[in-house]
């Protein structure tokens, strides 16, 4: 593989390639690789990064990748302002837990930074805090104030810690399923894929911790406790519908099936409920509870948006159907 030859051949297709690459030599400085041997092993990543830079951040990304990343970015904003509001709410988060939520808020901020960099001019317009209604009430108009909420079922979200934690768990678990569902779309761009995977696992770490708080880390062993209030750090069957199954909006869809939920093709991308125990056509034998816990499930973009839309004001335009 000769990188210069590749560029020369692209030149035949795109005469402006050299305008896009400022000069051959500086190409390598871009990557901090000046003077280093460029081995075949690093070339694929190098070339994909090179194209991304040459064709402008984001502008070379296919529409389906842009859609996945913008949904991810929207979810990150939803989470960022949620945790930032929680940290600003007086007497909500106990002192012992503030470091955790500061870390989570900052992680989401970093994810926003990376997603915006990757999307460039194709990123959605940055929403303000006023775009979100964390009561789940879909307030019709923007909400002014760091902890302002509408009249939804979770209206005590910034005054009652258990409600805050329940909404948090629902957000992180939705985010995990969304990244999982979006990852296969990102496969043509390996660097973008790996970045998304590296966000996905961090969201799962967040979920584990929030669940640990909810359970009370000193009171772990009560396998008969209702999963709604005392979840394990992993999703067990459908978690009994999640933190708040009987409100409107309900948390059931966070753990329920998406669309399509199944296929006769074992390699097809499907979005079953979290209690699914069949993967690649292999049915996990034995303890179905443990089998369900051992695998998280992806969720399709439409189902993700249907969940998230409950937490934005109507006029925001976020999570469009």
């Amino acid at each position: 593989m000769d990188l210069f030859k590749l560029i020369k051949e692209i030149e035949q297709v795109d005469p402006e390639i050299y305008d896009r690459l400022d000069s051959r030599r500086r190409v390598f400085k871009h990557f901090g690789m000046a003077g280093k041997a460029v081995t075949a092993a690093v070339l694929p990543g190098l070339v994909s990064g090179l194209f991304q830079r040459a064709y402008g951040q984001g502008t070379a990304l296919p529409a389906d990748i842009v859609a996945v990343l913008n949904l991810a970015l929207s979810l990150e904003y939803l989470e960022f302002y949620f945790y930032d509001s929680g940290l600003k709410a007086p007497n909500l988060i106990p002192t012992a837990d503030r470091p955790a939520f500061e870390k989570i808020r900052n992680d989401e901020s970093g994810h926003i930074k990376i997603l915006k960099q990757t999307l460039g001019s194709l990123a959605i317009a940055e929403p303000a805090r006023s775009a979100f209604d964390y009561s789940g009430g879909r307030n019709p108009t923007p909400l002014v104030g760091d902890t302002a909420v509408g009249n939804g079922p979770f209206r005590t979200v910034f005054t009652a810690y258990p409600i805050f934690l329940g909404v948090s768990q629902s957000f992180v678990d939705t985010g995990i399923r969304a990244y999982k569902g979006g990852a296969p779309v990102l496969m043509p761009n390996k660097d973008v894929l790996e970045a998304a995977l590296n966000i996905h696992s961090v969201e799962a770490r967040h979920s584990s911790h929030v669940r640990t708080i909810r359970r009370g880390i000193t009171n772990v062993a009560n396998p008969t406790a209702p999963m709604n209030a005392q979840p394990k750090s992993w999703v067990s069957l459908q978690d009994n519908g999640g933190p708040s199954p009987d409100t409107n909006p309900s948390t059931r869809p966070v753990y329920g099936a998406g669309n399509p939920a199944s296929s006769s093709d074992p390699l097809a991308l499907v979005f079953p409920a979290e209690d699914n125990v069949t993967h690649l056509g292999v049915a996990i034998p034995g303890n179905a509870t443990a089998a369900s816990e051992a695998f998280d499930e992806p969720l399709d973009p439409t189902s993700v948006k249907n969940i998230a839309r409950n937490f934005v004001v109507v006029t925001s335009g976020l999570f469009p159907a």
Partner: peptide, 16 residues
């Protein structure tokens, strides 16, 4: 893609 999906199903449990 189907194998990537399975890896994704497992890695988040490992992260938990």
């Amino acid at each position: 893609p189907g194998y990537l999906a399975v890896a994704g199903k497992i890695v988040s449990v490992e992260a938990r």
